[in-house]
Amino acid sequence: MIPEKEDLKSNYNVPNLERGLQIIELLATHPKGLTLTEIIQTLDVTKSSAFRITNTLIFKNYLQKNETSKKITLSRKLLTLGISSMNEQSIVELSIDIMRALRDELKESVMLGVVLGQTGTILEQVSSSFPVKLYVEQGTHFHLHSSVGGKSILAFMPEEDAKPIIDGISFTKLTKNTIISKKTFKEELLQVRQKGYAIDNGEDIQGIHCIGAPIFNEYGYPVACLWITAPHGRLPHEEFEAKGKIILRYALEISLKLGYIAR
């Protein structure tokens, strides 16, 4: 006999796990965070229970706490899980037509990628209309310190999310132009933030240039990057600024589709 739904709930639910999920769901609707007191008042849970559960989730890196404001928010770990799921279902679907339009305007290969943990991943690409092009398989990983994908996303991440990722980068030298210093990399991120777009000056593959801009979700969080890639002869330094502004415009179109409100 198959147990009724009510029997399953009464026999198999774990109260603290259920409360933990309620706290996560609550914080998902409050991106700026809530204090422990606010969580207790909203969910009507005891102080001791809420304290134990939130501290366990903080210890396991699912939540994070700002010691100044005492606000508790979802961590990068949970955001990563959410982004991973969202990528497959919506970012590519919402981006593909815009990627094709960008390819048609600039004629170069267009890539869409995300940062997951300490590496980047290619989600989708639209190939160049030129006979000579760079082709990359979906799911291919890319280095964060030498790519426009890594630079664009890290430059606009909150400091508390970006710092542990940057601290974990090994800064491996891939070409003569690769940034191999954390200090120089941080200076590069400041420039990316000022311009709105990032440059790969043959830092990942010698002779290949890339220009990319971040894509933001409804909370203004950088969830992906849109970029073009081409041989340096077709994408010379003197064209970086003009084409960077074009890519920035297309990336904003995708962001708006994701619910981002431009400021």
Results as ranks from 00 to 15, higher is better:
26 L>C: 12
154 L>P: 08
54 T>A: 04
114 V>E: 09
68 T>A: 10
103 R>T: 07
86 M>E: 13
37 T>P: 00
209 H>S: 11
170 S>M: 13
254 I>Y: 03
165 I>G: 10
4 E>M: 10
162 A>H: 03
73 T>G: 03
225 C>H: 04
66 N>Y: 00
148 V>H: 01
262 A>W: 00
91 I>L: 08
203 E>G: 11
72 I>A: 08
263 R>I: 00
248 L>A: 10
63 L>K: 12
130 F>Q: 04
24 I>P: 13
129 S>H: 06
238 E>Q: 14
75 S>E: 04
191 Q>D: 15
165 I>T: 11
244 G>K: 12
132 V>S: 04
96 I>H: 13
113 G>H: 08
176 K>P: 02
129 S>N: 03
183 K>C: 05
238 E>C: 08
56 T>F: 10
202 G>D: 11
168 G>P: 01
62 Y>Q: 12
156 F>S: 00
188 E>D: 12
123 L>P: 02
196 G>Q: 08
227 W>I: 00
1 M>G: 15
183 K>R: 12
90 S>G: 06
60 K>V: 15
93 E>D: 07
120 G>K: 05
137 E>R: 11
116 L>N: 08
249 R>L: 03
235 L>D: 09
68 T>P: 01
30 H>Y: 14
118 Q>L: 08
218 E>T: 00
89 Q>G: 06
150 G>Q: 02
244 G>I: 14
124 E>W: 07
123 L>W: 07
1 M>K: 09
132 V>Q: 01
107 K>W: 02
195 K>Q: 15
57 L>S: 09
48 S>F: 02
154 L>I: 09
243 K>Y: 03
133 K>W: 01
13 N>F: 12
245 K>H: 10
93 E>G: 04
166 I>F: 06
226 L>G: 01
68 T>E: 14
175 T>H: 12
193 R>F: 05
177 N>D: 11
222 P>E: 02
21 L>C: 14
31 P>Q: 10
135 Y>Q: 09
132 V>M: 05
98 I>K: 08
7 D>H: 11
130 F>G: 00
195 K>D: 15
104 D>F: 04
183 K>Q: 12
162 A>E: 02
30 H>L: 10
161 D>N: 06
31 P>C: 10
148 V>E: 03
29 T>L: 10
56 T>R: 07
208 I>S: 02
98 I>C: 03
145 H>K: 00
221 Y>A: 00
190 L>K: 12
220 G>V: 00
182 K>P: 07
202 G>K: 07
46 T>L: 06
184 T>Y: 11
190 L>W: 05
